[in-house]
Design a binder for these strands. Structure first.
Length: 157
DNA sequence: GCCAACGTTGGC
DNA sequence: GCCAACGTTGGC
């Protein structure tokens, strides 16, 4: 079983949205490295940190569970979608999605600034300067540590 | 809004 | 295959 981190701008899709819907197709990944992780390495049952990016307080806000194998991203074929890709064909899709389902919303999101202060998280891809990868692997140790920190934040609140 | 870092495209 | 130009991401 593997661990991941998924970025989303909360104005576009947040942990609250996932909690409400229960499950969603993780659409719109348009970076090859991120796609390869989705398509080739994610397995049903894997867990992912749900990260809120490009927002006032960037933070890990919850946990999602991978709920399907990868399949072609339907938005690449939809001329009306902002994710439309004219180079993609049904025979030769370029972009993929997995379904993700709600697992947990942190009572108190763990801010990026707090994560930067945490010596247990040294080497985490998210904390690398200039890191933009929207789908990234997370070590089990880092995943467990962040989950524990969120539980402590909950207990302290 | 600024801007550094990064990924992709396309001319050569 | 190189690399400049461009567009995007995302923290601040």
């Amino acid at each position: 079983m593997s661990y991941w981190l998924l970025k989303s701008e909360p104005t576009s899709y947040s942990t609250g949205d996932l909690r409400r819907e229960g499950k969603t197709a993780w659409e719109g990944v348009r970076n090859f490295q991120a796609r390869n992780f989705l398509r080739d390495s994610m397995k049903v049952g894997d867990l992912a940190l749900f990260y809120h990016s490009a927002t006032e307080v960037p933070a890990v806000a919850g946990i999602a569970r991978i709920a399907s194998e990868a399949y072609p991203d339907p938005t690449q074929f939809d001329a009306k979608s902002m994710y439309f890709d004219p180079t993609a064909t049904k025979e030769n899709p370029r972009w993929y999605v997995v379904d993700v389902e709600f697992a947990e919303a942190f009572a108190q999101p763990l801010a990026l600034s707090k994560l930067h202060d945490d010596t247990a998280l040294v080497g985490m891809e998210l904390l690398r300067r200039g890191s933009r990868l929207s789908v990234q692997p997370v070590t089990k140790e880092h995943f467990v540590h962040i989950k524990k920190r969120s539980a402590r934040a909950l207990a302290a609140a």
